[in-house]
């Protein structure tokens, strides 16, 4: 009776939710090609003015370079740390394992602003703040749990006899690691690299606090937003969005979709 109408109503509702979620992303994309300084409806003319503007801005280029350095270094560090923890959790049982895991998994639950303040105070204290690598240090702590989770999920799928089989065939523990565990985890490792890079690439609060004069892309955005309305933000935002999305889609293609399939 009302089943059909209920389905239609629900479909419309879900559509509205998705509209709300994606409206800012899509509008940002549209505005980035819009000639108006203060975009509204009706839209102005198509224009690549804002792209040209950021393309010719040396500050933006520096920020892009900084962001690439920060996110790639963060990705490598966080993935190494995440891998070590995931493997330890997979292989060993020991006292204080709970606190050990909490140590790595806790940071994402702490609000960014608090993390930013704590990092700034501490890194200044030990003379490590105001550098590009200050951001890398902070981001590695914040993103390692994501890498750990992805790699742990992969190890969970591994036949626990596989490592022992390598020993049984004459490989020592290091060889088993090199020839069995790492190859088995390879897709998860690449996926973890992509995701941690994507998270680091977008992070602005902690980066802004600890970076000193070294600006990354999100910091540039933050500074533009703090000033006047400037549509170059949309152009930069589109660039950031495309970068992050390629990383996420790469991670998805490599690992996550397979994960979902094998679990359902």
């Amino acid at each position: 009776m009302t089943g059909r109408w209920l389905n239609i109503a629900l479909a419309v509702y879900v559509g509205l939710i998705f509209t709300f979620v994606f409206a800012p992303i899509i509008f940002s994309l549209i505005f980035s090609f819009n000639s108006q300084r203060f975009p509204t409806i009706p839209l102005g003319e198509f224009s690549t003015e804002w792209y040209v503007k950021i393309f010719n801005d040396p500050d933006v280029w520096t920020a892009v370079r900084n962001s690439l350095i920060v996110s790639s270094s963060t990705a490598v560090l966080a993935t190494v740390l995440g891998f070590c923890t995931a493997y330890t959790d997979f292989r060993y049982n020991f006292r204080f394992k709970g606190p050990y895991l909490a140590l790595i998994l806790l940071p994402p639950t702490i609000p960014l602003i608090i993390m930013a303040l704590a990092m700034l105070a501490w890194l200044s204290r030990i003379g490590m703040s105001g550098q590009l690598w200050s951001i890398i240090l902070a981001h590695s702590v914040m993103t390692a749990p994501f890498a750990m989770a992805i790699i742990r999920l992969r190890l969970h799928q591994m036949d626990p006899d596989l490592e022992a089989a390598a020993w049984n065939l004459g490989g020592n523990e290091w060889q088993a690691m090199r020839h069995v565990i790492v190859p088995f985890c390879a897709p998860a490792i690449v996926s973890a690299l992509c995701l941690t890079a994507a998270v680091s690439f977008d992070e602005f609060a902690v980066a802004w606090f600890v970076s000193g004069l070294n600006k990354t892309v999100p910091i540039v955005i933050l500074e533009i937003v703090q000033g006047n309305i400037d549509p170059t933000v949309n152009a930069i935002g589109t660039f950031v969005f495309l970068t992050s999305m390629s990383l996420v889609i790469l991670a998805q293609l490599l690992f996550i979709s397979r994960q979902i399939k094998s679990h359902s």
Binding site: D161, A165, W167, N168, V180, P183
Partner: peptide, 21 residues
């Protein structure tokens, strides 16, 4: 004596073949 220092290959119940090879 550690497993890798022995000459006692095992055929596993799960077979434990390396899936990436």
């Amino acid at each position: 004596v550690k497993p890798h220092e022995r000459d006692t290959p095992l055929v596993w119940q799960s077979l434990a073949l390396f899936p990436f090879l």
